[in-house]
Amino acid sequence: MNASSLATIDETDHTQGPDDAPVTLIEYGDFECPVCGQAYPIVERLRRDYGDDLRFAFRHLPLNKVHPHAAQAAQAAEAAGAQDAFWAMHAALFEHQRALEYEDLKGYAEDLALDTERFARELDERVYNKRVQADLRGGVRAGANGTPTFFINGVRHDGDFDFDTLSQAITKAGA
């Protein structure tokens, strides 16, 4: 097994939870991937259960050839992030995985009271394409092997990602 180490979390990452949490869970995910959609409430529950013992980071791994809306959805999350609403958009996207057309994305931006003109312009100009692709390339080089891929304190989680399995792995890693 090739447990890969991972570059550290930096300020370009989207994180939830304290920087000094004993365990960092990184997800490489795709907003159109149904399995990532199943993992979403599990991660939310883990965050609630572990509280300050867990830091969560989400990075993009859009498999756009199987999920044709994934790359633009990822860029939408970044565009929302530029307006301090990454996590709200992340939630909106996972809660509406079957409605990820351009107009849908703009609708979520509106629901979140974002500057929709800016949001739409940044989507049109693919401002965050590079960032999203950099996440994908970095993830692949770190050993991400599909969506979702979880890393717990830098080690790829090769087990299932049901709540119990992930929870055990997080506890074992020190939370």
Partner: peptide, 16 residues
């Protein structure tokens, strides 16, 4: 039945 698995990933990074 692997969603977004090995081959889909390779397909996505053919440029690499």
């Amino acid at each position: 039945p692997v969603c977004g698995g090995q081959l889909a990933l390779y397909n996505e990074i053919l440029e690499e």
